[in-house]
Design a protein around this nucleic acid. Structure first.
Ligand SMILES: [Zn+2]
Ligand SMILES: [Zn+2]
Ligand SMILES: [Zn+2]
Ligand SMILES: [Zn+2]
Lengths: 130, 130
DNA sequence: TAACGCTGTGTAATAATATAACATATTTAA
DNA sequence: TTAAATATGTTATATTATTACACAGCGTTA
């Protein structure tokens, strides 16, 4: 059974918006969109985003400074994300590959590090842009 | 034989600085350090950084907005980077793992994307910080 | 009940990261 | 030897993110 987090008002508003988009949204574009709902300041957005990232509802696409809803129930637990990013149209897709995830989860370096999270971004050209 | 790029004056100054550090440097800390060498503006730093990233001499640690010298002759060709990052002391290490690299290089999604690059960041606690 | 810790809200100010636009110089290659 | 490509220098500005402070709501527990 998944732990069900209770989201606050601002967190709900911002998660709703991100879930409605199938592509990553940037913090200040989110801010612009939620002004009509009474969220006025960057910090209100960043606080909600940070929380949503922490509980795995959304992910940050680090190379793009943008946020996308999680489409993969498993990475909520594993703290692990894999994305493919088209460098032409900027289309972003969350990748769900059991074998690859397993390989990454099981990876051990030779320095004795304890991993609890990873983030992988593939870049290239999507079918439309090739 | 590796293609030997000829670096410009600013590029050399900035690469030198980054290579002397075994940890990632941030753009504005680089700017501060190279002011004595006559580099005065952020854009001069970013232009050199972008070029150095492009030719594989340095990598950007996306989750940290910082730049580190490449320690792995192979990723210059493969456009592929793997790092481990300690979330406590922020120590960053470039990982050089043949099996993992192969696995990632050979990864194919089911959307027909053509990959030419990837960036993987592992997070956790290093031996000292556990 | 009252005190406390925890999480969230609201607001203003500011810090940190990165790019646009323009003028000019230097190197490379046809 | 002219044109294209790459690099420089400078000013201004855009974009992304955090600090600091005051306070509200909620559940725990003394
Ligand atoms: Zn996910
Ligand atoms: Zn595309
Ligand atoms: Zn490298
Ligand atoms: Zn550490």
């Amino acid at each position: 059974m998944q732990k069900q987090e209770t989201l606050s008002k601002n967190q709900k508003i911002i998660l709703d918006l991100i879930e409605k988009s199938d592509q990553p949204l940037k913090a200040y574009s989110i801010l612009f969109d939620v002004k009509k709902k009474g969220i006025n300041a960057p910090l209100q957005v960043y606080r909600a985003l940070n929380k949503l990232v922490k509980i795995g509802k959304i992910h940050k696409i680090e190379s793009r400074n943008a946020f996308i809803a999680c489409k993969n129930s498993k990475c909520q637990i594993a703290n692990a994300t894999i994305f493919s990013i088209c460098e032409s149209c900027e289309d972003v897709t969350e990748i769900h590959d059991h074998k690859l995830s397993e390989h990454l989860r099981d990876f051990k370096d030779n320095k004795g590090m304890k991993y609890n999270k990873y983030n992988l971004e593939f870049f290239g050209l999507c079918k439309k842009c090739v």
